[in-house]
Simulated assay, not measured.
Amino acid sequence: MITVEYVRLMARYNLWQNNALIAAAETLDQAALDADRGAFFGSILATFNHLLWADQIWMSRLDGWAAPQVGISGSVSLWPTLAAWKADRMRADGRIRLWAQRLRPIDLRGPLIWYSGSQGRDISRPVATCVMHMFNHQTHHRGQVHAMLTAAGATTTDTDLVFMPEDT
């Protein structure tokens, strides 16, 4: 289904895109980051928060990270400022890259079983599907943030995977 090379590529892409969005977001003030822009989670910062929360949840299942102690509804307010979010985002991105580098083909096989708070039950899915979902979820919400940043007047950069620098 997927390979460790795919996972490593997507971990690099995640880091590249998050760095680009951080640079754009840092040109805005707190009010602009907190303004409700009509997106699913409302604001730029709330969407950033949810995205990092979700990465922590998935990596708790995939690599034993500590899971956030709040559910989806609390995911939007874990980091009250861009600076606080950025520090944990950068740590998480580095850890995701290290996890991807350690990954072996066997690690992508078999089921992943977890309790889903949003579904209120145990779930079992193939590990490879869960890994693809994590990266797809990142891309989805980063797209929302990219649109909100652009609408707020920030200058954003390319998001095309094929244009990612080789040294990322």
Rank of each mutant, 00 (worst) to 15 (best):
Arg97Asp: 01
Ala83Ile: 11
Trp85Asp: 01
Leu78Glu: 03
Asp93Tyr: 05
Leu62Tyr: 12
Arg97Ile: 13
Gln144Ile: 02
Trp114Val: 06
Asp107Lys: 11
Arg125Thr: 09
Leu78Ala: 01
His137Val: 02
Leu82Ile: 06
Thr157Tyr: 02
Ser118Gly: 04
Arg89Phe: 03
Pro126Gln: 11
Trp58Phe: 15
Arg102Ile: 03
Tyr115Phe: 15
Lys86Gln: 15
Arg102Ala: 12
Met132Phe: 05
Arg89Thr: 04
Trp58Ala: 03
Ile123Cys: 07
Pro80Met: 08
Arg109Lys: 15
Ala100His: 09
Trp65Asp: 07
Leu112Ser: 14
Gly120Val: 08
Val127Trp: 08
Ser60His: 11
Gly120Ile: 07
Asn136Ser: 12
Val131Tyr: 08
Thr155Glu: 14
Ser77Tyr: 00
Ile72Glu: 05
Pro80Asp: 05
Met134Val: 14
Arg91His: 10
Ile113Gln: 15
Thr81Asp: 11
Gly120Arg: 11
Asn136Cys: 04
Pro68Lys: 05
Leu62Glu: 00
Leu78Gly: 14
Trp79Gly: 03
Ser75Asn: 08
Ile96Cys: 01
Asp160Tyr: 11
Trp58Asn: 04
Gly153His: 12
Gln138Phe: 03
Tyr115Arg: 14
Trp99Pro: 06
Ala84Ile: 10
Val70His: 06
Leu103Ala: 10
Gln101Thr: 13
His141Phe: 07
Ser60Asn: 11
Ser73Cys: 00
His137Asn: 08
Gly143Cys: 07
Val70Thr: 15
Met148Arg: 08
Trp58Leu: 04
Asp107Arg: 15
Ala92Cys: 14
Leu108Ile: 04
Ser124Asp: 03
His133Lys: 03
Thr81Gly: 05
Ala66Arg: 14
Cys130Met: 14
Asp88Pro: 13
His146Ser: 08
Gln144Ala: 05
Thr155His: 14
Pro126Gly: 02
Asp93Val: 01
Thr159Met: 15
Pro80Val: 07
Ala128Leu: 00
Asp107Gly: 08
Arg91Glu: 09
Arg142Phe: 06
Arg61Ser: 08
Ile113Leu: 01
Ala67Val: 00
Ser60Thr: 11
Asp88Val: 10
Met59Glu: 03
Leu62Lys: 03
Gly71Thr: 07
Ile106Ser: 09
Pro126Met: 04
Gly153Val: 12
Ala100Pro: 01
Ile106Asp: 14
Ala151Met: 10
Met90Asp: 13
Pro105Leu: 05
